[in-house]
């Protein structure tokens, strides 16, 4: 039986991983819900964000500048990917959409490998994030703690966009019935571009923020892609609250299982997902018969 401090520390790790998964998955679920496209390039876009962070942070030494420039870069990537490729597949079967986004992901991964090589790169922790914080009886890396706050703030910002703006209104309505949104005079195709770009930026920013605590390498996104799929199944396909709660649940499952036996953490995650699929197939926040 692991000790109490270890469990507590793992619970914190779970929170850090959980908020990150929540952010990654919300991008994936918004795209799926609104556009009906399961974006298999999402993990590679997470990886691109991490490399953007590496390039700008190494060149300028500024973490904040790197996030801003990186987010702008991801926006360009998102718009180009939607206009140039994904848009042509809205009317195609799901298999085609999966194949084309999966293919785009492979291209991104191999381009990164061609430019930066296959070796793991490190992004330094920002100066204000170095060191360790003493939390009562637990020591915890400062940046990881800050990251929880930063991501929580971003999720809140995303919440405000979705629930307090006209754009968010169109997105939420589009998740339910894109056809009716068009009948009410809204150019759904243009809204789709915005949603796709927003989802891509979300994936990229997640990669940027996480870059200082993991090694940056071309294949780093694939693991997150799979976990994000599990998260949106747990939370309910197309549901933003579902992605947030699902992300936190998944993060804690992985981290707490690791305290007992790290080899079982993914197994436990799938077991919980399978159980949920039996008991509540639409997921925690999903509605029945959707997507």
């Amino acid at each position: 039986m692991p000790s109490a401090p270890l469990l507590l520390s793992q619970a914190f790790n779970g929170l850090a991983l959980g908020t990150l998964l929540a952010l990654v998955s919300s991008g994936l679920t918004i795209i799926l819900g609104t556009l009906g496209v399961l974006n298999f390039a999402h993990g590679a876009l997470f990886m691109l964000g991490a490399y953007a962070m590496y390039v700008v942070a190494t060149a300028t030494g500024s973490y904040v500048l790197a996030v801003v420039v990186g987010a702008a870069f991801m926006l360009v990537v998102g718009v180009a990917l939607e206009r140039g490729l994904v848009r042509l597949f809205y009317a195609r079967p799901h298999e085609d959409q999966i194949l084309v986004t999966f293919g785009a992901g492979i291209v991104f991964t191999e381009v990164a490998r061609a430019i930066f090589g296959g070796n793991a790169l490190t992004v330094p922790t920002p100066s204000w994030g170095q060191g360790i914080v003493h939390l009562g009886f637990l020591f915890y890396p400062t940046y990881r703690l800050q990251l929880i706050g930063i991501i929580a703030a971003l999720l809140f910002a995303l919440y405000l966009v979705l629930y307090r703006t006209s754009i968010g209104l169109v997105v939420r309505a589009g998740i339910e019935d894109a056809r009716m949104v068009g009948i009410l005079g809204i150019n759904v195709r243009r809204a789709f571009l915005g949603v796709f770009a927003l989802g891509v930026v979300t994936a990229g920013v997640s990669g940027m923020l996480y870059a200082p605590i993991i090694s940056v390498e071309p294949d780093m996104g694939s693991n997150f892609l799979v976990q994000a799929f599990v998260v949106i199944v747990i939370g309910g396909l197309g549901s933003f609250p579902g992605a947030v709660v699902g992300g936190l649940v998944a993060g804690e499952i992985i981290a707490l299982t690791s305290a007992f036996n790290a080899a079982y953490s993914d197994v436990m995650l799938y077991a919980v997902m399978a159980l949920l699929l039996v008991l509540r197939p639409q997921g925690l926040f999903g509605s029945e018969g959707r997507v």
């Binding site: 006209s166 939420r172 309505a173 339910e176 009410l184 809204i186």
Partner: peptide, 13 residues
């Protein structure tokens, strides 16, 4: 739109 409130349905329109 079942997930939207009555007022949100109207504002969207």
């Amino acid at each position: 739109f079942g997930q939207l409130t009555v007022e949100e349905n109207l504002r969207l329109a």
